[in-house]
Amino acid sequence: MIEIENITKRYGEVEVVSDVSFVVQPRTITVIVGTSGSGKTTLLRMINRLVEPTSGVIKLDGRDNRAVPAYELRRHIGYAIQGHGLFPHRTVAQNIATVPVLLGWEKDRIDARVNELLSLFQLDPATFGPRYPHELSGGQQQRVGVARALAAEPNVLLMDEPFGALDPVIRAKAQEDLLAIQKRFGTTIILVTHDMEEAIHLGNRIAVMDEGRLIQYATPAEILAKPATPFVETLIGTGDRPFRLLSLNEIREAVEPGTAEGEALPASATQRDALAELLWSGREALPVEADGKPIGRVTVEGLIRRAARPA
């Protein structure tokens, strides 16, 4: 659990973060969204003390994050940034091993962990381990950056626009990987982005920041249904709002009894995907299957009802 209590950061006269408080539940993904200059990155960097707050307290599992020296604290908090920040003079394997080496792990344990992480990110350890970062593609570098952040099995992972430099296809893949890894390790993730779409897709909760203030802290569904201010509404983009709402839920929840013609969709697909498929193929309904067995159908009418503003 991460408790952010009345955090303020001033640079001279300018207040970049103003009295922000919220609590991040363990094993969840919290996304901090805001425009540039909203103080979201500064707030993130105060959690691992790359920036020291002017006032306020941040507690990790009940312990003030100033209880240990800053560099000790950072070894136990994963940190991944845009443009990956890999050490160009060290191999991929050495990069991933950075924090375990700092923590003084045994060599066998480090090697095993490096291989495990490389395999997890679909990078063959024998091929990619000995390479230098500049020999990898942008997407591969980004994966190594996240692998390095996770190397010492941290409970908390901070990510600062980690997918900002990736093209849309690779970005979508990286987001799926992140969700899978979060599920597997149960890491508490705090991610900063300016992209509301990304926030809605990844976040269990979203913290919207503007001019140093926390405007709204809520689940994606709440943010979509009841944006606290016109600014939040602008961030969501009212034109896409119903589709974003649909994208939050699987079609499993929208299944109606009955059958339909044509190709089936898996129950784990999002409702937005189902509506898109229906509109594109000109059908009124399509069958849904789970584990290869048909479980019912979804209809255009049913999905449209679900896309309406919740009461």
């Binding site: 691992n48 790359l50 020296p69 560099y71 000790e72 604290l73 950072r74 070894r75 136990h76 940190y79 940034i81 845009q82 443009g83 990956h84 920040g85 890999l86 050490f87 160009p88 003079h89 950075t98 924090v99 700092l102 390095r148």
Partner: peptide
Amino acid sequence: SAVVEAARGVGMNERQRLLKVELPL
């Protein structure tokens, strides 16, 4: 700057940053 930032972020102290990252680069 991203590399220097990363060196701080992974928890290297000042001496480690100098010897392991800054001087080699």
